[in-house]
């Protein structure tokens, strides 16, 4: 363990995540990573009036992985989909007050997870429209 490498923010988000879990009847779900690599994240979102009204994460991974997904949820909650899509790994790292170099991939995975969840939601929406 190299906790000296983490900011207070990372440790706080890791120890006291407010967004752990699944959104019930999620509008979209995104899963990224692989247990073989030691990180797997699932992001679920609820969308209302084109905004992310709720967002939750489930993460198998290290301190930085859990901290990154919690940070992602805090940034994305309440955002318009168009703005949420623009969230990058840099935004997540910034929210955490920085991440050690070797852990930067955790923030990349987090951002990818949200993009996948939004993609999933938009695909479902398109499906609904074509069925109409």
């Amino acid at each position: 363990m190299q906790h000296g490498q983490y900011t207070k923010k990372v440790l706080d988000y890791f120890k006291n995540p407010k967004h752990a879990g699944d959104v019930k009847n999620a509008s979209g779900v995104g899963q990224v990573g692989n247990p073989v690599c030691g990180d797997m994240m699932k992001i679920s979102i609820a969308v209302k009036d084109d905004r992310i009204s709720d967002i939750r994460f489930k993460t198998f991974g290290c301190v930085a992985a859990i901290g990154s997904t919690e940070a992602l949820c805090r940034i994305a909650k309440g955002k318009k989909l168009a703005d949420a899509k623009k969230i990058t790994s840099k935004d997540i790292a910034k929210e955490l007050g920085g991440l050690p170099g070797i852990k930067m991939h955790c923030s990349v995975l987090g951002a990818d997870g949200l993009k996948k969840a939004i993609d999933d939601y938009e695909k479902k929406q398109r499906g609904k429209k074509t069925r109409k």
């Binding site: 440790l11 890791f14 030691g38 859990i66």
Partner: peptide, 14 residues
């Protein structure tokens, strides 16, 4: 099973 070692260590350290 299902959890990662550094995260366990992080909670124990706390």
């Amino acid at each position: 099973s299902y959890v990662e070692g550094e995260a366990i260590g992080g909670y124990l350290d706390a």
